[in-house]
């Protein structure tokens, strides 16, 4: 490899706290690691755990920006660790858990619990017209352009970055976040869903829903999947304000 002499020595400052050991206060622990070519934060953290500190907690599954489990605060901004190259960061890297979710330990948070509660609250699943779904019948065909539109919104991986990036969510615990608003937008598009805007107003038409959003747009700017959150929120706001 060319010029290992120029490889940087990274100083990684990790915010550490384990709720199971409340007597050990939250603290920042600093590790020094040699940067490798094409190193992502996932590779870096795995190396830390292998060589320096087996007690370090963090989550990864897919390592390819698909599962949404590796969201963390990277130098102050939420992002996916597996999709972040150390080359894009300064030599001092500060890592912290996503602040709006229940802490499991160190960099690991329980986004799953939050997402499940939000999904139940917003009834984010297809509500069919029929009470009983006949599983033997073929599904109705969907217009390909519409299917694309639904898919575009369905790309959300529930990583929680939009929630952690949202100033409103920081101040108000019950705010559904852009991920929630986007979900309603997704089912609103779905022709199999029998619900209309009146029904969606019941779920989202309040100050914890779309009218609580203060249009700071950090969600839109930091979503790792680049979902059109700005347009979705504005669209639903217009729709639901008309009810």
């Amino acid at each position: 490899m060319n010029a290992p002499a120029t490889a940087r020595r990274l100083r990684v400052h990790v915010l550490r706290y384990n709720p199971a050991e409340p007597e050990v206060l939250p603290r920042t622990q600093t590790y020094e690691v040699d940067e490798a070519e094409g190193m992502t934060l996932f590779i870096l953290l795995s190396e830390l755990r292998e060589k320096h500190d087996p007690s370090l907690q963090f989550d990864f599954v897919c390592r390819a920006g698909v599962c949404g489990s590796c969201g963390m605060v990277i130098n102050g901004r939420p992002g996916l660790a597996c999709r972040t190259l150390t080359a894009e960061l300064p030599a001092d890297i500060t890592l912290a858990p996503l602040p709006t979710f229940e802490l499991i330990g160190d960099l690991s948070v329980n986004t799953g619990k939050w997402m499940r509660e939000m999904t139940e609250r917003l009834e984010a699943w297809v509500h069919t017209k029929e009470q009983e779904v006949d599983l033997r019948r073929h599904e109705e065909r969907m217009d390909p352009d519409l299917a694309d539109e639904v898919y575009e919104l369905d790309r959300c991986i529930e990583c929680g970055c939009c929630v952690a990036a949202c100033g409103t969510a920081h101040m108000r615990r019950d705010f559904v976040g852009a991920v929630g608003i986007n979900k309603v937008g997704r089912f609103r598009l779905d022709p199999r869903d029998a619900r209309g805007d009146e029904d969606f107003y019941e779920l989202l038409g309040n100050d914890d829903g779309v009218f609580g959003c203060m249009s700071l747009l950090a969600c839109n700017d930091l979503c790792p999947k680049e979902l059109p959150l700005q347009s979705q929120i504005a669209f639903l706001r217009r729709r639901l304000a008309r009810i």
């Binding site: 102050g76 990036a165 920081h170 203060m214 249009s215 700071l216 950090a218």
Partner: peptide
């Protein structure tokens, strides 16, 4: 809430958040 927002804003360095 004020200090939560302030801390968040300083970390984020995001123009629209600061504008708010």
């Amino acid at each position: 809430q004020y200090s939560l927002f302030g801390r968040h804003m300083r970390g984020m360095r995001h123009e629209d958040t600061t504008l708010w």
